[in-house]
Structures are given as C-alpha cells and as structure tokens.
Computed example of a mutant assay.
Amino acid sequence: MNLTKLNIIIIGSVLMILLAACGEETTKSADKEEATENKTIEMGQINWAENIAVTNMWKVILEEKGYNVNFNLLDMGTTMAALAGDELDIALEVWLPVQDQHYYKQYKDKVNFSESVWYENAKVGLVVPTYMEDINSIEDLNANKKLFEGEITGFDPGAGTMTVTEEMIKEYGLDYELLPSSEPAMLEEIKQAVKNEEPIVAPLWSPHRIFSEVELKYLEDPKKVFGGVEKIHYVTRQGFSDDYEEVSGWFKNWKMDDDAIGTLMTSVNNAEKPIEGARKWVKENQDLVDQWIK
C-alpha cells in the first residue's frame, strides 16, 4: 500500500469517527429535549390570593428541581373539567367537606382528590366590618336589608363558596341578591367600604391576607350552611402519581400553618411580580420546603 492510499484511509476513518460522535451528540440532545418535555407540569391557577401564592411557590420549588411548570389561569369549574380531560396535571386548591362538595360528587370518579391536606384550619363564611357592632349573625341580615341595600358582594361565579352562599340565602330565607364579580374587585369594594365606614357583607375565607389589612368579623352561622372547619386538598388527573412519582410524594408531604401561608401571601403580594415574592419566601423558608421534598 502506498503512502497516498494510507492517508486516504486514515482521513476517512477520522471522518467516520467524527460523524459518529456528532450523531451521538445529536441523539443525546434530542433525548435531553424529550426528557425536559416529559417533565413539564400543567398546573391550574385561579385568581385567588392564596392560590396565586401557592402556585407560584410550587413553580419555584419544582423548577429548581428541573421540572417545567406552566400555569393555566382558569375558573374552578373549567379547572375540574380540564383535569378530568387530562388537559391539566394538577390543581392545588379544593376545599372540603363543604365548599367544593359538588365538584367532589361530580368528579370523584374522574380525577384524584388527595387524601392528604396542606391546610387544616380553613374557615368560610359571611363577613362584615367589625364596626358593625349590631350585625353578628346571618340571622340579623333580613332585619337590616335596607342598610346593605339587599346585596351581598361576591366574587367568581364558579367558586364553590359562591354556590354555598346561594344555598345559604335560600336556607335563611334572605331577601338578598348575591352579586358576582372577581376576588380582586370584591376585595377593593371591602377596602373602600371600610375606609369610608360604610356597610358591606361578603363571603370570605381564611387563610386570606385581607384580614391583616382591614378589620373584619365572621357572622355566626347557626344553621352551619358554610360548615365548620374546612380542609384544603389538591387534585390531580388520573395517572399523575405514576407519571410523576417523585413530585407526587412531595405534594403528599406538603403542610402549611397560619404563619407559613400568611408570610407567603404577604411576600407574593408585596413583590413586583408574584414569582419574585414566592422565590424570596422559598429562600427564607428552605428548612420547611426541605421537609416536603425530602
């Protein structure tokens, strides 16, 4: 074999090795891209203060662990339908046993309601400003219809609490109209009424940051239409725990008390962007977060 042929063979071999390496690198890149896509979680989000807080918190936690999280801003009814249709992976806020019971009855065989709860002392009811000293029970409302102009200031029409409030109006025989809007609009009306020391009655829930901003009180509910202590669950599409076994375990460990949810909501509310407030809170509460993702 002469020198020229030998050089050609060597060069050809080198080129084959380089092409094989490039192909292997392309395959690895494609595999990595596919793995990233498979780690994308579609999360439902509702425009409620505590929901914005916890969804952004989990986005920070999960993305630090290599997952992608997409938010889907929906109302409660659409959220449940999307979970049942496998269009969403998870939604973080379902109130049981009373507020969202109709969603539980409708979807209990189509989605997975968590057995574990992340907040155990939730409360729901009608509130009025504390300066309304003579209004202390739902039963006081009909006698003061003129004072409130026969209106209960509400929020999202698809919310479980709004449905329960409609049931409460019937149960107590109230000659009142429940006015739907949005949570931000309802909160603004409450703040303006308190600022001007005007009467207002609205359905609200704890935990909520509004209680740290204005002085409100729950009206007594002798007939227990709003129930007693509510617990907050999360809900997933069927098959989520199999597809995301690690993440499913983290959510089962998730627990928050009044201080934790209160400081999170404040941090998110005070930040220029919710995600920035959530990131700050996660950094300051890493010991608690580590208990969830152990």
Rank of each mutant, 00 (worst) to 15 (best):
P199K: 06
E42V: 11
I232H: 02
V127A: 13
D31M: 13
R279T: 15
Y103R: 02
A185F: 09
D31E: 12
Q106H: 12
H208S: 13
R279E: 15
G173V: 09
D287L: 09
E149Y: 10
T236E: 06
D86C: 14
N285D: 13
D31I: 09
Y244M: 12
Q101N: 14
K39F: 09
E245A: 15
E198Q: 07
V247I: 12
G125V: 03
N253G: 05
P199Y: 03
G23L: 09
M256E: 03
E25I: 13
V201G: 01
L179V: 15
E245F: 07
K110W: 08
K273N: 10
L18A: 11
K231H: 06
A185C: 01
P199A: 10
L74N: 13
I9D: 09
Q286G: 05
P207W: 02
H233G: 10
I135F: 11
A122R: 00
K123A: 09
T27H: 02
T36L: 15
I232V: 14
E139K: 08
V225W: 00
M265T: 02
E213D: 08
W58D: 10
Y103C: 07
A122F: 05
I190W: 04
E93L: 07
I152R: 07
I261K: 01
Y131A: 06
G150I: 02
Y172W: 01
E166A: 14
V127C: 15
Y234R: 00
L83P: 12
V54Q: 11
V225H: 03
E63P: 07
F226W: 04
A122T: 01
D156V: 05
G154H: 07
E87P: 02
F71G: 08
N285T: 11
L92C: 05
L126K: 05
W292L: 07
V127F: 07
V14P: 00
P199M: 05
E183L: 04
E171I: 04
N7A: 14
D290Y: 01
I61T: 11
A49I: 00
L83R: 13
I210V: 10
I17S: 08
N196D: 14
A84D: 14
D75N: 15
A53E: 00
I9H: 06
I90H: 01
I210N: 09
F251R: 02
L288V: 06
T26V: 13
P207L: 03
A20V: 10
A271C: 03
I293N: 01
Q238C: 04
D259G: 05
E149C: 08
A143R: 10
M162F: 11
A35S: 07
S114L: 07
L264F: 09
T161E: 12
L147V: 04
S114I: 11
E197G: 06
T40N: 15
T163Q: 13
M80R: 08
K280V: 09
T27A: 10
A84F: 04
I46P: 01
I90D: 00
A271N: 01
K28S: 13
P222L: 01
V247H: 02
E215P: 02
A159I: 06
E115K: 14
G23V: 11
K105D: 15
E276T: 15
K231S: 03
S241F: 10
A271Q: 00
Q286D: 11
S137V: 04
T161L: 12
Y218S: 06
L18C: 05
Q99M: 15
F71M: 14
